[in-house]
């Protein structure tokens, strides 16, 4: 340290050195982030024998391009496929129901949290925060017992109920920031003009907070689409009702060709990525709103 201080020339890390470091970090970050997904895409369009014989050679030659893994993964079992299309429609139904219920409930709650003073407010927000941090695996034990008892295992309704409870705290937290940005004066003007509370929420607050609500909905959708643990616990016996996450995870246990497995993984990732890239800016600002407090 002392020796360095005595030598002012060496004390200053060269700008070139910092730049090289920066570029290296960025290149590595991009390779690691996008690499595995790209690998999955490349394997999914090659014939199985090529993948097994030349694992190091990743670029398929034009002649050997083979897209048949996708229809094989998507087709129903009776047609020699693996039923992914059905898993996708199951998951779509579950995720969409979760979004609708979760967003309606959390929008009402978020509005109350932002604009109103009421008894028990602190208890309620502490409750939501603890749901946010509470281990899901622990709840799996009693929920499994309870749902088995009332016969809701193997039903998508039970799953929607759980996803809703798991996503409401996050949704409420994100929506709070968006709703707080709606000017209070506009709301008051509507109320003074004789608008009821629910009508005011629907025709004044909702339209103004729409981008935020869209971003939150997308986030909830992604969580529900990706969820694995509860789908595994409640649906594993019932192949007709499998979700995409459960389906792909179960297929890895069978002797499914790796190319089909990759095609399936890419197919279930695609909807998530499309949504993410479409609403990227909105999502990012919603997710980081809490970080600004410092």
């Amino acid at each position: 340290m002392k020796r360095l201080a005595a030598n002012p020339v060496r004390r200053v890390p060269s700008r070139g050195g910092i730049r090289v470091l920066k570029v290296t970090v960025i290149v590595l970050a991009v390779v690691f982030s996008a690499g595995p997904l790209l690998y999955g895409v490349l394997l999914s369009v090659r014939p199985l024998s090529a993948v097994l014989n030349e694992p190091l050679n990743l670029l398929p030659s034009l002649g050997e391009l083979d897209f048949s893994s996708y229809p094989t993964a998507l087709r129903g079992e009776s047609e020699g496929g693996f039923g992914l299309a059905r898993f996708m429609s199951n998951t779509f139904l579950v995720a969409l129901s979760t979004v609708v219920i979760s967003i309606v409930f959390s929008a009402l709650g978020a509005y109350a949290a932002v604009r109103m003073k009421f008894f028990g407010q602190r208890t309620v927000s502490a409750l939501f925060l603890s749901v946010y941090l509470f281990p899901g695996i622990v709840l799996a034990v009693p929920l499994f017992v309870m749902l088995s008892r009332i016969g809701l295992t193997g039903s998508l309704v039970g799953l929607v109920l759980i996803y809703m409870a798991q996503t409401v705290p996050v949704a409420l937290y994100m929506l709070r920031n968006y709703l707080a940005a709606v000017p209070r004066s506009v709301e008051e003007a509507a109320l003074i003009d004789g608008c009821g509370l629910f009508r005011m929420l629907r025709s004044v607050v909702l339209p103004m907070a729409l981008p935020g609500i869209a971003a939150t909905s997308l986030y909830v959708f992604i969580i529900a689409w990706n969820e694995y643990l509860f789908a595994l616990l409640f649906l594993v016996q019932d192949r007709e009702r499998w979700t995409v996450a459960l389906g792909i995870a179960q297929l890895t246990e069978f002797t499914v060709p790796v190319t089909v497995l990759m095609a399936g993984s890419i197919a279930i990732t695609l909807p998530v990525l499309v949504g993410f890239f479409a609403a990227q800016k909105l999502l990012i600002s919603g997710l980081t709103a809490g970080a600004e407090k410092g």
Binding site: P36, L37, I222, N226, Y228, I248, A249, M262, S265, Q280
Partner: peptide, 14 residues
């Protein structure tokens, strides 16, 4: 940001 939104099952399979 992509790895954060990918389905964990797809990521693990890959």
């Amino acid at each position: 940001l992509m790895p954060y939104v990918l389905p964990v099952v797809a990521a693990a399979t890959i």
